Structure formats: C-alpha cells, structure tokens
Simulated assay, not measured.
Amino acid sequence: MAVPLTFTLFTRDAKPPRPLPDQLLTLWTDVTNAGGAVGFVPPVTAVDIRPRAEAHLTAMAEGRTRLLAGFTADGRLAATAFLAHNDHPLMRHWAWLYTVMVDPALQGRGYGADLLREAEDRARALGLEGLRLTCRGGQGLERFYASCGYKEIGRAPDALRVAPGDDRDEITMLLPLPRVD
C-alpha cells in the first residue's frame, strides 16, 4: 500500500504557498506529456500550460474555484483537481471538477481514487449535492470514473479534436451526493 497523500483545499482565503504554481505547471506538463487528457495534446511545455493554469488560479482568487491538492510526505505536489462552483441560481447545488491529475510516476497506486474520494468529501462539506466532470473518450477514463461512483450522463460525439482525423467523444459524468444524515 502506498503512503497516503495529504490533501489540502486551497481557496481565495487560503492561498497556496508560493512554489505551488510552479509545481502545478510541472505536474500538468508531466501528465499531458504522459498522455493524460487534461486539456492539451503532447508534447507541451510549461509555457504552453501557463495561460490555462493562470486562468484557474485567477478563478480561485475570485472565489469561483477551489484547488484540491494532494502532497507526498516530502511535500511534493502529486495530485490535483479544481472544484468550480456554479453561479447560475438553478445549479448552485452541484459543482464541476476540472483538471483531475495524478503524477504519472505515482499512478496505479490508488491516488486517483483517493483524490476523487477527497473531492467528494469536500463537496459534501460544502453542502453540494453532486459533482460533474468531463473526460476524453478513447482512453478508458469513463471506466475509471465509473469505478469511483460516477455515472455517464452525456456524450458529445467527436467533440474533441486531438489531431487531424482523431476526434474523440467528450463524456460528461455525474457523482450524485445524496445527503447523509
């Protein structure tokens, strides 16, 4: 059994420590270059990732997004997910999970499932009733998310073009969070 990660939820009020943005860029670059479906197609550099990462961090500063980060025992960033709130009055009871990542060197040890359980616990603590995420078809991600309790609720065929002639489905998945009393 792998040593558990320590999870921290960063918000507008609890800002991440200064080296975290650099660690986030490194993680995001490594995950993408290992074939991870996190918004880019390899090969990428931190320069390619930076604008998207800065947009996520800006959303954090504005209170629209929270960063769930998992750290190894030596303090290295190992896993992340962004929890994005809905500001639409009819959708405030659920949130989106974005950019769900585990360091490629640590994959296969259960950290992805740990990250999703922690996101579920944090969402429940916030009073949310569901989490949604999207994933790229053709990589088996929907099977992983299903093993963590998510259900496929929609599929947009060929919505993601990862290369000329290589279009993938965008799959929307939902984790209902019934109230536990």
Rank of each mutant, 00 (worst) to 15 (best):
Y111A: 07
A156E: 15
L115Q: 10
Q139P: 00
G137R: 03
G137W: 12
C148E: 07
R161H: 07
E118N: 05
A156D: 14
I153K: 02
G138K: 10
A125H: 02
D114P: 03
G149S: 05
Q139K: 12
G112L: 06
G130P: 01
L131F: 09
R143T: 15
G112N: 08
A146I: 08
L128P: 00
L116A: 01
A156Q: 10
K151C: 13
R136Q: 15
R136N: 13
D158I: 04
L126K: 02
R143F: 12
C135Q: 11
L128V: 01
E129I: 04
R122L: 01
L115T: 15
A123N: 06
L115P: 03
L141E: 09
S147V: 08
G138D: 04
E120W: 00
K151N: 12
S147T: 12
E129F: 10
G140K: 11
P157Q: 09
A123V: 07
P157M: 10
R132I: 08
Y111H: 15
D121Y: 02
G127Y: 00
R161M: 05
T134L: 07
A123H: 04
K151S: 15
E142K: 08
A159H: 11
A119V: 05
A125P: 01
R155A: 05
L160F: 05
R124I: 03
E142Y: 12
L116H: 00
L126W: 02
R117S: 12
G130Y: 00
A159R: 06
G140C: 09
A125G: 11
D121W: 06
G140T: 14
E142C: 08
K151V: 14
R117L: 14
I153H: 07
R155C: 09
F144D: 02
Y150E: 00
G154D: 11
S147E: 05
L160P: 04
E118M: 13
G149V: 04
R122F: 02
F144C: 09
R161W: 06
L131Q: 06
G149C: 09
P157H: 09
G112F: 08
D114R: 12
Y145V: 10
G149D: 07
Y150G: 00
G137L: 09
L126P: 00
G154Q: 09
G112P: 02
A156S: 12
